Amino acid sequence: MRSYAPTLAILLSIFLSCTYAESIRSIFLFKDVLKSKTAALRTSGFNTLIIFGIGVTEDGSINYYSNTPGSKDIVVAAKGGYVGGDALASKVLSFKKGNDTGVNRIELSMNSAHVKELMAKGAGDDTVLAKNFKALKVAWGLDAVNNDDEKVYDIGSTVAFARMLGKVGYKYTFAPYTNLRFWVSVEKQLNAGLKEPGLLMDRVYLQCYDGGARNNPAEWSRTLGIKVVPLVWVTNDSKPGQGTTVAQARGKFNSWQGSVAGGGYWNDYDIEKMKLSYKQYGDVLTSIFK
Rank of each mutant, 00 (worst) to 15 (best):
83 V>I: 10
139 A>E: 13
139 A>D: 10
23 S>N: 14
159 V>F: 08
208 C>S: 12
149 D>W: 00
150 E>Q: 03
93 L>R: 14
193 G>I: 07
171 K>E: 05
239 K>Y: 12
115 V>W: 13
161 F>N: 02
251 G>S: 14
230 P>E: 08
287 S>L: 05
214 R>T: 15
25 R>Q: 10
209 Y>P: 00
1 M>I: 12
148 D>C: 11
99 N>C: 07
97 K>N: 05
10 I>C: 06
25 R>H: 08
270 D>L: 13
16 L>K: 00
80 G>C: 09
166 G>K: 04
225 G>E: 06
145 V>R: 01
97 K>I: 05
49 L>K: 03
67 N>I: 00
143 D>C: 03
241 G>W: 09
211 G>S: 15
230 P>V: 08
99 N>K: 15
197 P>R: 01
57 T>E: 10
288 I>M: 08
51 I>Q: 00
5 A>F: 12
155 I>S: 06
100 D>Q: 15
37 K>Q: 14
54 I>L: 15
142 L>M: 13
55 G>E: 09
18 C>H: 08
180 L>V: 11
130 A>F: 06
149 D>R: 02
67 N>A: 02
51 I>G: 00
205 Y>N: 09
101 T>L: 11
210 D>F: 07
23 S>W: 05
142 L>R: 02
219 E>T: 14
221 S>T: 05
16 L>F: 06
186 V>K: 07
23 S>G: 14
16 L>E: 05
104 N>L: 03
45 G>P: 02
114 H>C: 04
82 Y>C: 07
134 K>W: 13
85 G>N: 13
138 V>T: 11
61 S>I: 00
217 P>F: 07
174 F>H: 04
10 I>N: 05
66 S>M: 02
26 S>M: 07
94 S>F: 01
63 N>A: 08
98 G>S: 13
19 T>Q: 10
78 A>P: 04
275 K>A: 13
236 N>G: 07
60 G>F: 12
196 E>W: 15
164 M>C: 08
